[in-house]
Design a protein around this nucleic acid. Structure first.
Lengths: 168, 168
DNA sequence: CAAGATTGATCTGTCAATCTTC
DNA sequence: GAAGATTGACAGATCAATCTTG
């Protein structure tokens, strides 16, 4: 990645010191493994991908189980295009249906069907159990606070920088 | 996701309390955004995906710039199949070449070419700068310790559980 | 038969049009 | 013209064979 004993010149940029590096590698592994563990758990126990689960979850949190496509895209961190393809598949499986949105004929509402709600109700406990077992069971209150605070700061930093959009 | 006021039954499993939930959501956002920011930075500045960068990086850390396909798959967290397709593309771009491994005629070595090494040397400083700027610049020594420790514990926990492999 | 690696089919996501309504 | 959404083509990843050597 860019260790101190790396073949790459150490003075070519603001290098990571060994301490930062080991922290960064630990974070990298954690993010990767945790993510894929959650994916596998959902896929295996409920035949849902992570994003599919969240689509159902986000819809279920509305009283009318309905969300505009654009808004759903935002809360699930997906592009509108990706969501459109995704909803098409969920629709075919009977978990969601689309209907024109009253009031603005450009918009489409995604609506959670009864079958979709049942699916979520079945999937949710296993998901929660996995999160608790993998993440929180061995985490102290103090550590939890630090993790949350750091996560929020990094997220804010990422969003502030335009790294995910444009030039440096 | 599974908040306390969720439509889904709170007693259907070991539920997440509000504190755990907000921590989990913060982590989720962070992991997602940070990952995609790093992807974008590399892609934009060096026309390399995250995994492509790491393939080059892992190869560069060997004195002979060589690694067996299976081993490279492990250190880059990729499946052998994925790696095979990937190396084919990197080979076409001239960054890597494949040669039969002396000693075991089943194995293949992936070797970093000079062009591949140059590519990495060019890409690395920008990558390191991004990590430092997005992750470490506003992180205290104490927090860094906590983050690393927590990351390691979660990773170990994930690897111990067979969540990413088999049945619960 | 197991280990190492590759290949082709298929699935999913991204990107660049496209279409409709505001 | 911009906003909301969809579509089709293409790139990348997964999965199930397949092939070769140990």
């Amino acid at each position: 990645v860019g260790s101190a004993q790396d073949p790459v010149e150490p003075d070519a940029g603001p290098w990571l010191d060994p301490d930062e590096l080991s922290c960064w590698m630990a974070m990298g592994r954690m993010m990767l493994k945790l993510r894929s563990a959650m994916e596998c758990q959902l896929e295996r126990e409920s035949q849902l991908s992570y994003i599919e689960y969240h689509v159902l979850a986000m819809l279920s949190e509305r009283e009318d189980h309905t969300l505009r496509m654009s808004d759903l895209a935002i809360v699930t961190n997906a592009s509108l295009s990706r969501l459109s393809h995704l909803i098409k598949r969920l629709e075919a499986r009977g978990y969601v249906r689309r209907e024109p949105r009253p009031g603005d004929r450009r918009s489409t509402n995604a609506v959670l069907t009864d079958a979709g709600y049942d699916k979520l109700v079945t999937a949710a406990p296993g998901h929660a159990r996995a999160v608790r077992s993998l993440v929180f069971d061995k985490l102290g209150t103090q550590e939890r606070r630090v993790v949350r605070s750091v996560s929020e700061r990094i997220t804010a930093r990422v969003e502030a920088s335009d790294w995910d959009k444009q030039v440096t």
